[in-house]
Amino acid sequence: MPDPTGFLDPAVGAAGSSTEQVLGLLDGRRLSPAQRRIGQFLIDHLAEVVFMSSVDLAERVGVSQPSVTRFATALGFSGYPALRDALKGIVLGSVGESPEEVRRNEFQAAIAAEQTNLEALQRLAAAPDRLIETGRLLAGSNPLVVLGLRLSLSVAHYFGYSAQRIHPDVRLISAAGTAADDALLQARQAGATWMVAFLLPRYAQEALTAIDHARELGLKVVLVTDNPLVPFAGSADVLLPAGVGSRLVFDSHAAPMVLASLLVQAIADAAPERTQGRLEAHESLSEARGFYR
């Protein structure tokens, strides 16, 4: 049976341990947490999985049988039988690994993927004019709106918390629906011209709706996402990509967090006197109130 992923090409399949090969099969796929649980089970129990039906696998993982089928198609296979055939090829061509080796390879692969994401971000920063200009634009928006929903909220919160130290009015939107609509309207009426939106996988539809509303109100959008080719790229006036790590059950956001720090730095550099004054005021307050130990 032909392999739609090309993963069973002898030149590909022969390289690396069985764990590395399964990780390669999963790498770069946009999988749900339930699908990643299935992927994790494959890594931990590969020799067993090749003898399991989709019903058996679903029962062992604790998901539905259709979830197993959707998992296989998400990897590019026609269905679970085709995926199982691919896994059999990996097992037959691999050397047995201990559970400790499996876990170590998995963790190391996750870190290596993050290193790749950071290297791509380093190339973006190597030509800093784009970041510098973006920082200037954001520094001039008063208020400055920040959007982050669901898992993207952690990066947006970090950016917003840091930016508040150097910018006079930063407004974080972390709730969707009418609450977001109200916050966007109030910010626009107060003079906001720019919004920074963090939209990382899995992409929340409610975040896309908020971005569309922001643009309808006349706000310009800096979009931080994982891939410059996302289908909603046209919603951004400035798009800044930062890859996410997809090797674990949930995405890791090392590169987006670094990009958030770079944006804060660019805002600070765009208004150095304001930045210095606000930082000194905060330090005086923190010392007087004993904020830190």
Rank of each mutant, 00 (worst) to 15 (best):
V102F: 01
Q108A: 14
I111Q: 13
A112R: 14
E114T: 06
T116S: 14
E119L: 12
A120S: 15
Q122S: 15
A125P: 00
D129T: 00
R130L: 14
S141F: 00
S141M: 07
P143G: 08
L144F: 02
V146S: 02
V146H: 01
L149H: 10
L149T: 03
L153F: 12
F159M: 07
G160R: 01
G160Y: 01
R165N: 11
I166F: 04
H167I: 04
P168I: 08
D169H: 14
D169A: 14
D169N: 14
L172W: 04
I173Q: 02
A175T: 13
A175F: 07
A175G: 11
G177V: 07
G177S: 06
T178P: 00
T178F: 08
A179R: 14
A179L: 15
A180N: 04
A180R: 03
L184I: 07
R188G: 00
G191H: 03
G191S: 10
A192D: 02
T193E: 11
M195K: 02
V196I: 11
P201M: 04
R202F: 11
R202Y: 10
Y203V: 13
Q205S: 11
T209M: 08
A210F: 00
I211K: 00
D212W: 00
E216N: 05
L219T: 08
L219K: 07
K220V: 08
L223D: 10
T225Y: 00
L229T: 14
A233N: 08
S235R: 14
A236R: 04
D237M: 04
V238G: 03
L240Y: 08
P241Q: 03
G243E: 08
